[in-house]
Design a protein around this nucleic acid. Structure first.
Lengths: 148, 148
DNA sequence: GCCATATGAGTTGTGCACAACTTAATTGCG
DNA sequence: CGCAATTAAGTTGTGCACAACTCATATGGC
């Protein structure tokens, strides 16, 4: 029974440690562009749907982050000249987050980031794909469980 | 090329999302005991090696956290009456972190936590074991890579 | 034995995460 | 229509993470 309470057996610790380890891999690479990892995630979403600027809560839906996290983060991205925030005309409660030219241009300059990160992990393409699948399933399972 | 820059393809996002999702599972359970997840991890290490109280940096070695994170966290655990910090007599630079009776007792009261978390994830035992193995390997690969 | 160097813990400052709350705008029910 | 309930974003407060730093103690080379 109490043998379950051992650090190296905990899946959650493995997940927590792996997540921080991978962020360590990203850090020096993103730092070249003056970005943090969560800021990079926001840009990934914006790059993906360039033309229709998402609202703060749509962004939050994709990244599973709330306005308490996103509001200050977006302010910093705006201060860096990468995004613009504009109140929606149709619904004054909404704030749409769009890319500036500088934000759009950054995408090309960061095209090699995924490859560099993959290389730094020392994992094969197949291992990364498999890991991705399992993790996505875990996250979805947990969220499905929570909705009941 | 730029197709790599898509959120749902990123292993790192999958890892980051899964880690936060699992922490969401722990939160209400740990909250019953007034603990945060990193505090729980510290207690796991202390429970495991009850008799020889580790120093702050030994703790950090296990959890891969530095004194900047651990010092205030340990202060809070001490304020909660779960641990005691004592300067080592042999080496005045070291601080040994030991359990109080309350901290030791807590272990029994939390014996069901791993099972409850496992249940809440909806994953089978086999899936958890497999996930644990892959993640541990990822973390170790990254850290090995970093040492070169 | 002396001192440059290294080590251990703590502090400061920044940036997430997240809960709880505020404020403003919109919806929908009677 | 009118107003209670909802929704969207932002604010406040707490607790990690982590870099960069300070300060005290210990160690090793001379």
């Amino acid at each position: 029974m109490t043998d379950d309470l051992v650090l190296r057996r905990q899946v959650c610790f493995a997940l927590y440690a792996a997540s921080r380890a991978l962020t360590d891999v990203y850090r020096p690479i993103l730092d070249e562009h003056g970005l943090t990892y969560p800021q990079y995630l926001v840009l990934l979403v914006l790059w993906e749907r360039d033309d229709d600027a998402p609202t703060v809560s749509e962004l939050g839906g994709q990244l599973r982050l709330d306005s308490g996290t996103l509001s200050p983060l977006l302010k910093r991205l705006e201060a860096a000249g990468l995004v613009v925030r504009t109140r929606s005309a149709a619904d004054e409660r909404r704030v749409e987050v769009g890319l500036t030219d500088r934000g759009r241009t950054l995408r090309e300059r960061m095209g090699d980031v995924p490859r560099r990160v993959a290389a730094a992990t020392g994992l094969t393409e197949a291992e990364l794909v498999s890991l991705h699948g399992i993790l996505t399933r875990v996250t979805e399972t947990i969220h499905r469980q929570k909705e009941q």
